[in-house]
Design a protein around this nucleic acid. Structure first.
Lengths: 153, 153
DNA sequence: GCTTTTTATATTGTGCACAATATAGTTGAT
DNA sequence: ATCAACTATATTGTGCACAATATAAAAAGC
């Protein structure tokens, strides 16, 4: 008990720096995104929709690894803000299609400089960022497959 | 507008895989930690306290990059669960010292295998995990210093 | 055609995460 | 000693994140 060879030290965890980095990133984005009227998860939704719209709630959730319990109220707030519309798919009434409004599309221009604004404050080289991104993307793939293994459909 | 050379594509973001990995990790930990009666952030608090206790709320927050608005209710729930005690520091009445109860200390034995249980399900080599951990720890340091720069004390 | 199963989203309740603010305690400069 | 500035924690309100459950629509089996 209390030996130093156990694996419970905070500095030995992989999960903790990910957790801290995620929180710190969202804190760093907050004032920048506030000018656009977005929260950080809402910004991620906009990134997905700017690539392709309309999309169903489920498709958004699959891309972002979030479920309807998170997305539904978030999307309703975005609808209230005039950024997106929500309407049932006529072809499959179970689906709700999320589309961009004119305002939502226009917001892309204002968001254009957000990534570089933040990256510029980070004192990390582009190479470091690219390598880090690839590593964590790989981890996400591993975690997502582990999730699918544990709770099989 | 819509050119492919802008930086708004989700796959080009560093922040998004961190966000997804953090969520996926906490989802993966949830069923394991539930057996110990802990949530994932509560588990992190226990890791810190198992290293050293008692600690003030502020010291916990500094270590975990969390503020009192997050920690106070979390610690009250942990107090209610019988894992920690909360009492004012007699030497400085502004501080609240968080200490472990017998039950809180005993829980360490039950938690002993948690890290390896999770790591074993990940299909990542120990070398990959160590390198990833170092990269993200470095990022946390960079983000924390950026935070300090933006909002100077 | 009608029931069973599956699928897609919504709802409810709990627990973070954090900004803004409040409160109480401490320190420092006179 | 007194008061202004500062520090540590608590409170309030908003917005995620997710498990569990509900509801409704579609698909599949008979």
């Amino acid at each position: 008990m209390g030996e130093d060879d156990d694996f419970l030290r905070l500095d030995l965890q992989v999960c903790f720096p990910l957790y801290a980095a995620s929180n710190l990133f969202s804190r760093l984005y907050r004032p920048v995104l506030a000018k656009l009227g977005l929260t950080y998860p809402q910004y991620l939704v906009m990134l997905v929709l700017w690539e392709q719209a309309p999309q169903s709630v489920g498709a958004l959730g699959e891309r972002l690894h979030l479920d309807s319990g998170t997305l539904t109220p978030l999307l309703k707030r975005m609808e209230g803000a005039g950024l997106v519309t929500r309407q049932r798919d006529a072809a499959d009434e179970r689906r709700v299609l999320i589309a961009l409004t004119e305002q939502g599309m226009a917001l892309r221009q204002q968001a254009r400089d957000v990534p570089q604004t933040l990256a510029s404050g980070l004192s990390l080289s582009p190479e470091e960022l690219i390598e880090l991104r690839a590593s964590v993307q790989h981890l996400v793939a591993v975690l997502a497959s582990a999730e699918a293994t544990v709770s099989p459909s």
